[in-house]
């Protein structure tokens, strides 16, 4: 199973003028690879996995997903997107039901996947009874239940608190090692990317292009607090700094960050330093 994007563009009809979200993207994801895509706000990070999942079509170019008999990639979102009217287990069974898998088999698969994300005892709970991290784990189980060759993850941990996120990083690395899935993981957090990925692609501010590629060759399991990891993240961050500033200039009104009467001397082009 391999993902390949060739000369992919994606344009939207914006309110005033057309918006180019992705510009001439070419990338390949190898089977079993953990690839992270990092970029500043609004650079088309969410658009890319949508294209791969087939939820959107490229305006130009092609997105080739060589799935064969293995089924399509499954997307996981920033908010878990669990169906509130279904129990956790019925959520996990959702895709299997759509595929008309018999009930007994569905149940078996669902419990197995809930075991993998350590949520078995919450199988009968409703989504609103779960914490943010538990919801996200349920969403991962729901995706894994289909045994997709590729998991596409769009900032899946961005809404979680720092501790929960740390745990999720460990869990995801474990799941990846245990299942051997190909993972395309999107984030705006450089440390998270470096912590998880074999390879990190850095994107430019909008229109999103691929700017650099960083290979991360650190032993696993990794943690964001690992000092060697901080070094690699620093390198990546240096590469991205201009792009983050560019994105901020686009998204904030100029001068917005400054109190009245204290605009920076060098004029409207200057913006506060990156986070």
């Amino acid at each position: 199973m391999k993902i390949e994007l060739r000369g992919v563009w994606r344009e939207f009809n914006g309110q005033q003028r057309p918006v180019t979200a992705l510009e001439d993207i070419g990338l390949e994801v190898e089977e079993g690879e953990f690839l992270c895509l990092v970029g500043p706000s609004g650079c088309g990070k969410s658009t890319l996995p949508d294209l791969v999942a087939g939820l959107q079509e490229p305006s130009r170019g092609e997105s080739i997903v060589n799935s064969g008999a293995h089924g399509a990639p499954v997307l996981i979102f920033q908010e878990a997107g669990l169906f509130p009217w279904l129990t956790v287990r019925d959520n996990v069974e959702f895709g299997l039901r759509v595929r008309r898998i018999p009930r007994a088999r569905r149940r078996e698969i669902a419990m197995e996947q809930l075991g993998l994300v350590r949520l078995q005892q919450f199988a009968e709970a409703l989504p609103h009874q779960l914490s943010g991290g538990m919801k996200q784990r349920a969403a991962i189980a729901r995706a894994l239940a289909l045994d997709p060759p590729v998991l596409l993850m769009d900032e899946p941990f961005a809404a979680l608190d720092a501790q929960t996120r740390d745990i999720m990083h460990q869990e995801l690395q474990r799941i990846w090692t245990e299942t051997g899935k190909t993972i395309l993981f999107v984030t705006h957090n450089v440390r998270e990317a470096v912590c998880l990925a074999d390879r990190v692609l850095l994107m430019t501010a909008r229109p999103g292009r691929i700017k650099d590629e960083i290979f991360v060759d650190l032993p696993r399991p990794r943690s964001v607090s690992n000092p060697e990891l901080a070094e690699v993240a620093q390198v990546a961050l240096d590469h991205l700094r201009d792009e983050i500033q560019k994105a901020e200039r686009e998204e904030f009104d100029s001068g917005w960050l400054y109190p009245e009467g204290r605009l920076p001397a060098s004029g409207p082009g200057v913006v506060a330093s990156p986070r």
Partner: peptide, 11 residues
């Protein structure tokens, strides 16, 4: 989001 979730799960 729910529609996208349904679609990505094959519905």
């Amino acid at each position: 989001l729910l529609l996208k979730a349904g679609q990505t799960l094959g519905a």
